[in-house]
Design a protein around this nucleic acid. Sequence first.
DNA 1: TTGAAAGCGCTAACAG
DNA 2: CTGTTAGCGCTTTCAA
Lengths: 356, 356
Amino acid sequence: VANPERQTRARNAGRGHGRPTLATVAAAAGVTAMTVSRFLRGGDGVAPATAARIGAALSSTGYTPNKHAGMLASGRSNIVAAIVPSIANSNFSITLQGLSHTLQHAGMELLLASTDYSLAREEQQLRAVLGWSPSGLVVTGCRHAPAARALMLKAQANGMPVLEMWDHNPRDKQFVQVGFSHAAVGRAMAQHLLQRGHRDLGYIDSGVAQDFRARQRANGFAAAARAAGVSCRLIVAPPIEAMAAGRAAFTALAQAGLPRALAFASDNLAAGALLCARGIGVQIPAQLALLGFGDQPVAAQLGLSTVGVAPYQIGAICGQRLLRMLAEGGARPGAIAADETQPSLSPPTLLQRDSS
Amino acid sequence: VANPERQTRARNAGRGHGRPTLATVAAAAGVTAMTVSRFLRGGDGVAPATAARIGAALSSTGYTPNKHAGMLASGRSNIVAAIVPSIANSNFSITLQGLSHTLQHAGMELLLASTDYSLAREEQQLRAVLGWSPSGLVVTGCRHAPAARALMLKAQANGMPVLEMWDHNPRDKQFVQVGFSHAAVGRAMAQHLLQRGHRDLGYIDSGVAQDFRARQRANGFAAAARAAGVSCRLIVAPPIEAMAAGRAAFTALAQAGLPRALAFASDNLAAGALLCARGIGVQIPAQLALLGFGDQPVAAQLGLSTVGVAPYQIGAICGQRLLRMLAEGGARPGAIAADETQPSLSPPTLLQRDSS
DNA sequence: TTGAAAGCGCTAACAG
DNA sequence: CTGTTAGCGCTTTCAA
């Protein structure tokens, strides 16, 4: 070849992203890239005079580190991937805020995906986020498509902390779980109403067909009612905005004849029903007891009894656990078991207010 | 050196992340990595027989592409970074859901950061996410720390689409804006109440000290009242949960003497006040008119007049614009101007209900 | 305390 | 249609 240099330049046309690199900074500081890299990662073993020159070069070039390159070389990404059914659902958005706050303190980034309550989409999103080699993975719930579960297990086997949040299933603890049993909450809700002496119960479930956890609460509620020998009607709310759905479900039920006490899959459903009931002059709790789920602000305002579930804490604890697992060197099965100790999630609390 | 091969292996101890790579798949399929790469990126120009072997190799190895390596080589990351003041705020979480849905369709990932309404933290988060060379950037609002603005401009100059959402400032259009003027909304809110004949106004502002956009609405409201020669009291709600804050602010105001009409920085503030007012027997709207902001579900349930602002649409439009800018080849200033055409955001709408 | 060499896993460019 | 070569920007390892 006549002119290899020229050919190389031609071959590399289109390469490079225009931003300054470590080499740019290094040239400006009169050192090699390696020294700049050391400086950036804490400055251990860099002479003060050199450090000063590097600092100057850094700001004069406006250098921004390329974290992809760093990841590729080091194998550590400092990305945590979180997968939730819906970002718009306030339970999950508050949880994400808790997770984000905790991760920010540790210099980790949050990669977010949502599934619209579909297991197929969850698997898809899982594949997508795993491509970024996250340092940790947080998924929602304990139910996953078989392939998704396999991916999670493989990731965990490779040392990636994998957490399941918003559910708790003692019979299937392959991953760290930060959540609570929805069936138990459903039972507790029924028990509360039974203790208040109500013998004719109703439950209005979420209209989101794929919301397993809501279904588990409904089932737990129904089972407890059945066990007490009490009648329990189960109604599924229409798949529209929750407050409007609560109103609609209540209206339908009122025409069929109201039970003595009604529990709901969410506070918003309950709030819609409560406002509707007040509107038509139903006395609460004298004629009808109401019980929500989630302890949203609206529940406190309406005097609605509910179940508090600490969504922010779920996210924050996921973050803390994840960081600790990372610090303790990966997610080997032994480490996971040890991790069960603390920090732990406050259990759901039944908050009795004026509606029951 | 006696045995260079051996030395190389020693040097590379600890390298490699244990996962199968393109080379692994290629070996299994009896081709080179390049052919597998072609197959994965659409399969153009790969013989059917080869494609079949690669497909088999792909699933037998359980290959997951390393997107960092892909990014590094191609310069395209398919990551969109979004920075919001608060993930827990339902306006922003719904916007993020809209953005996420739109980006998912295009195979892009969402990297999320929150600032707690602090410009300093915004700058920090901006630096952090820029290290991942996102394909696009979505920030909240038009106010930024000078250094943050400089980073955004530099990124845009390098061809990265940069969008500002949830605000609109015609005098400062350095970036694509997907939002509305909060001052104009504040004025419109005042005008609505003035048109209903109220001559004694009050405004209850958010207790979040750094929420500039809420402040702009308050200022617009006050300015319109002043221009009409009407008295207007401005109250700042306490920095607690919004519904409780609305109740507290209303209680304080009721003791000092209620105005004829009250507007609020958010529906939740207004809802708290409305429920409190109903509780103490204030007739709405006969004695007191109420006007919220945001068109949250609770507003419809309470018959609260409000301003609809389409948070999902804001996110979806950001996503669409961003994808289009990317398709049209970068964010050159000219392209931005052209982008102003469509899709466009529905302007805020005053929704009159029973409270005014 | 600093540097040199090598390579992380992938894709662009060119060659055949 | 497939392969070869080089290199993206960084960090690891070893050498000085």
